[in-house]
Each structure stands twice: as structure tokens, then as C-alpha cells.
Design a protein around this nucleic acid. Structure first.
Lengths: 340, 340
DNA sequence: CTGAAAGCGCTAACAC
DNA sequence: GTGTTAGCGCTTTCAG
């Protein structure tokens, strides 16, 4: 390494026989410094290859200019879209973004969040892990009045800013659509019910059935973790019922795909025999065959909004919280389209 | 905000009527401190809700415990896989990870890299932007002896650690495979030739043709930016040649898909009439129909290796550089499989 | 085993 | 318009 000890403002000051504070002010374009000295200082800074030490400045200012983002898994289309949107806005506003993934493990999430606190992030944007059921690590941020924004998976009992999609309306819309297409027995693959998102999707489904006067049949709902394998297990189970469903509202696109492949292999035609709708609009859903109807979740926009919101909070010290509910959009594709 | 000014080691010290240095040492498990005092100190730290201020510690230690990662676009499967792998390793080793995306713009990349330097990242992992053709911002890291690791898209003229896949072999293998399947006129959609990866893929293609005694026809190569639209434009052009190709080696999966859809809409059968192979093994390539043959790039592993390598450099001050070439794997699927 | 003191590089009263 | 001074919170010689 040979710490070539970087030039500091003192080096510039010495060179010009002026004080370090003047240099600092000049470099920060303080109006009280004359244009001449500013230019001289900037020239010397350049010639020395000076780069401000943000660490020092941050310590002094008690502000890290950094926003923390915690997601279950970076390498998941929806989450990487959110990160991408948030990074975009944050960068333009002069903030850095540190990212960690919880791998859906509560223990790792706690660890990460505490480490971000120690790094004095100015704000935290988080979608909690599936597993997480204790929230002290997040309440810490609240207590210290460090802006905290939940997205997608929020914690009901923590009163702070939240950006979610209208999962209830999504579930409702999917179900109504299937009914409109003439499907009579609609099943549902639901995600973990401790997560609000999955809970709401299921309730939207139930409400749509009710509104349409369709008897709700508990046995048509299968709650699982919505992995690809779960999808196969669940569809197998549902199809082996005495009175199997003729349509499935899948809690995400992953299970929609695996269920679809299973059905296809069994010679069941989609959408003629069984209709399928997913949730999330993963990129693959539009290119598979048949293409999968789904609910589009605006990940990139969600990230942008989360970053905008948290920056407003960081800079304006607002104390009022809001929950932004982004609209869901039903994307009708082949897997549920009987042309009705 | 009401900076509730966090408790510091001095607060702990005052409480126990000891010195801050002792507290610092205790908290860092310095062996010179007696177990008793350590315990007392830790108890008080807990009761005060003390969290070390990493910023201050970093400034003092001239080490940020942070690794910077720069990718063209976070929201791209391959890159998010790399990030995920790197974050995984970094976190376990006690490093934070700050991430930015260049959007493939040289100007933004320069900006990001300089900002990361100012933030005193301990090392930088980067895949350069398509556009980037000047490298002073990266040479800066070299000059200051801050570990720099390129992945995927490396800069030949900068001598440092690199982790790449064997693009030449990949291009070669794809082409050989198409030849083995009986295709006679093989076209190629190539990416920007200033990027080594695309350059190598093309040369692998050319070499395979040569080895098989197939005349190389320049008109069958179309260089573009490999967007979805580029794929359509390119395939249109190639298919309108007097003597059109009967197989296309596409520089990535995106163009493979858009070309495939174009051909399908024209009633051209795949793989019977025209064979298609992509590159990168995007998740969609295995679920579309026909599924797309492609070259698998181990993104997650690449990220892990990059992080391992840079951490070794940060901690051991090694000065020798290595280029790790990860093997490519040809994944044969329907789009090029005539069963030969 | 513990304390005193200095300093990482920067900023911001407060002077003049 | 510029300088002096005092820290931000932590670590680390050097003393004892």
C-alpha cells in the first residue's frame, strides 16, 4: 500500500501560505472567498492531485451522505430494479448507496442493520426478510430519528414511511379477470401469511370471489414459500382434489411458471383447460410460452420514490409519515386469455 | 432529527471514571485490558445503547472497510449476480459494499469512481462502461496502490487483477456446435469491438470457422450495441442478404431472443430452418420457447472471486497481479438442437 | 494494566 | 475576505 499519504487542505494551504480554513471554504465555493483566491487554490489543488477526504468531512458534519438499502436478495429482478431506481435518484442528489442482502434471514438482517447504523447511514431503505419477526433493530432507527423507509414488505407495527403496491387490489383484479374469462373454480398459491403482501393478495382474491357470489373453498388455497419446487408440489396437490380448480392465481411468477410446466407435461392445455396468473411481472413471464398473465410491480419507480422520500426526510427533517401505495397493473397475456 | 448525539466512548469512560483509551481498548478486545474491566465496560456500553462510530474509526485508521463496486447496470441479471456474490463474501469478511451503476456512460463512470476514491474505499471492483475509452480515473487507483479488480469487461492496458470468462473459447465453442449441428452459413451479431469480451467472442467465432475450413464472410457479421432493437435490425439485414445465414451466433441472449421472435413471426422455424445461440445464460433463455442455447457465465462465482481477491490484496498488500479466466459452459437447448 | 495527549482531515464559530 | 481555534469520535504511541 505505501500510504502515499494523500495531499490535504493543509498541504494546499502551506503551498500558498494561507490558512486551511480558507482552502476549505474555497473548495466548497463559499461566497465569502474572493474569486482570485478561489482560482489559485483550485489550481494548486489540481496540481497536487488533491481529492477531498469524504470520511473526515462526514465525521465533522455528522452526516455520511450515504443511504443504506437492505433487500432479501440482490440477485432478484424486482429487488435489483428497486436498487437501480434508488441508486439513480440517490446518486443525482449526491448520496452514496450501500447495499446488503439479508438472504431472507432475520439474523443476517439484524447484523446488517446494526452495521449500517454504526456506519451512520443518513437513512435506511429496507424490505424485510421473510423470516424477520422481531423489530428492535429497526425501531433503533426510529428512536434515533434516522429516516427509515419500508418498501414492498413493510412492518405494520412500525409507524414510518412505506412504499407498497396495492396487493389487495392486485389479488382482487387477478381473480376478477379469471372470473371474467369464465373460470369457475379458482385456486390460489399463497405466500407466507406473516408477510403483509401475501396476506393482502389472498384477501383480494377472497373478496373478489365473495363479490361475485362464488363460494370460497379453503381447500383451494395452498400456502407455501413460493419457490419453484413449492409451485410443483402445490399444483400437484390441487389438481389431485376430487374437484380440482380450473384456474390458479399464483402468488408469484416463479410458481406460475413451475405450475404451468407441470400442467403442460401432464397434457393439460393452458389457458383452455386451466388458466394461470402470476404476480410481479418477472421478465421471463412475457417471453415464455404461453406467456404468463401477471401483475406488474413498478420496481424501478418504487426505488426512485423510496430514495426521493428518504432524501426529503433527511434534508427537511419532516416528521410526518406517509404510506405510498403504488397502483398495480394487470398484464393480460396468453396463460389466462380465452378471448372473452 | 434532533441529533440525540449518540453516546461515545467518552460517555462510557465518564460513567466509570476511567479513560477513553481504556474503553476503546476494551471494546476492541485488547488483551492488555483485564477481563473485569472489560466486562464492566461492555455492560455500561450496552446500558447506554452505545454503537461505535465507524466513521471516526475509519478516519483514524485510514481504512473505510468498504469495497466499491461499479457495474454498467445493477438491474441486469449477470451483474446483479456478480454483486450478490461479492456482497456475500465481503460481508462475511467484515466489509461493506457500496454500489453504483454507470449506465454504460463514461462520464458517469468517471464521476462515480472519483467519488469512491474520495470516500476512501479500500478497493474497487469494476466492469467498465461500454462507452469508456479513457482510463485516467482508474489509473488513479493504481497510482495510489488501491486494489483494483476488473471483472468481465477489463481494460487491457491497465495491469491489475482481472476476472474474466474465456470469451474466445465461448465464441469458438458456440460456432463449433453450430457446425456440428449441420449449419452451413453462420452469421454473428457482435457487440462493440472496443470491449475485449465482444472482440474475443467474435474472434473465437472466426477461428472456429477457419479450423473447419469454412470461408469467412465479413457480410455475415453485424456489429451493434446488442439491445433488443439492435437484434431485430441486425437479423432483418442478415436475412435480406442474397445468400442469408442458416444460423446466428448472437452476442448476447437479448438479441438472440429478439432475433428469434422476429424469425418466428416471419414463419421461419427454429432450429429447423435457422439455428440460434446466445451468450450469458440469462434466466429467460431457458424458459422461452424454443429455449435458447447459450454460454453460461458464472456471475455469482465471479463476484465471489473478485471479492476474495480484492480482500487478499487489501489485507496482504500483495503486489502481483493475476488474471483469472473462468471457464465457459455451452448450454445446448432447443434453439440450435437438430438432434445431430 | 491504565492514562494523557496528540492527531486522522475537515469545518465552523468567532474574531478582525 | 481571511485566520485562529476548537473539535467531530476514535486509536495509539508513550509513560508510568
Amino acid at each position: 500500500m505505501t500510504k502515499n499519504s494523500e495531499p490535504t487542505i493543509h498541504d494546499i494551504a502551506r503551498e500558498l501560505k494561507i490558512s486551511a480554513s480558507t482552502v476549505s471554504r474555497a473548495l466548497n465555493d463559499n461566497p465569502r472567498i474572493s474569486l482570485k483566491t478561489k482560482e489559485k487554490i483550485k489550481a494548486v489543488a489540481d496540481s497536487l492531485g488533491y481529492r477531498p477526504n469524504t470520511l473526515a468531512s462526514n465525521l465533522r458534519n455528522k452526516k455520511s451522505n450515504t443511504i443504506g438499502i437492505v433487500v432479501p436478495l440482490i440477485n432478484r429482478y424486482f429487488f435489483s430494479a428497486v436498487i437501480s431506481g434508488a441508486e439513480d435518484v440517490a446518486f443525482k442528489a449526491g448520496y452514496n448507496v450501500v447495499i446488503s442482502q439479508s438472504n431472507d434471514l432475520a439474523a443476517k438482517e439484524i447484523n446488517i442493520v446494526q452495521s449500517m447504523f454504526s456506519n451512520r447511514v443518513d437513512g435506511l431503505i429496507i424490505s424485510i426478510a421473510m423470516q424477520t419477526d422481531t423489530f428492535d433493530h429497526l425501531k433503533l432507527f426510529q428512536r434515533k430519528h434516522i429516516p427509515l423507509v419500508f418498501f414492498d414488505r413493510a412492518v405494520p407495527e412500525i409507524d414510518t414511511d412505506k412504499i407498497v403496491v396495492d396487493d389487495f387490489a392486485g389479488g382482487y383484479r387477478v381473480t376478477q379477470h379469471l372470473i371474467d374469462q369464465g373460470y369457475k373454480r379458482i385456486g390460489h398459491l399463497a405466500g407466507p401469511q406473516n408477510l403483509r403482501t401475501y396476506f393482502d393478495r389472498k384477501n383480494g382474491y377472497i373478496e373478489a370471489l365473495r363479490k361475485n357470489g362464488i363460494a370460497f373453498d379453503e381447500s383451494l388455497i395452498n400456502v407455501n414459500r413460493l419457490t419453484s419446487d413449492d409451485g410443483v408440489t402445490a399444483i400437484k396437490l390441487l389438481m389431485s382434489l376430487p374437484n380440482p380448480p380450473d384456474a390458479i392465481f399464483c402468488g408469484n411468477d416463479t410458481t406460475a411458471l413451475s405450475a404451468m410446466i407441470y400442467l403442460r407435461d401432464k397434457g393439460i392445455r393452458i389457458p383452455e383447460d386451466v388458466g394461470i396468473v402470476g404476480f410481479s411481472n418477472e421478465p421471463f413471464s412475457q417471453v415464455v410460452s404461453p406467456s404468463i398473465s401477471t401483475i406488474a410491480q413498478p420496481g424501478f419507480v418504487m426505488g426512485q420514490k423510496a430514495a426521493e422520500l428518504i432524501i426529503r426526510k433527511i434534508e427537511n427533517r419532516e416528521r410526518t409519515y406517509q404510506t405510498i401505495v403504488l397502483p398495480t397493473e394487470l398484464v393480460i397475456r396468453e396463460s389466462s386469455n380465452r378471448g372473452k
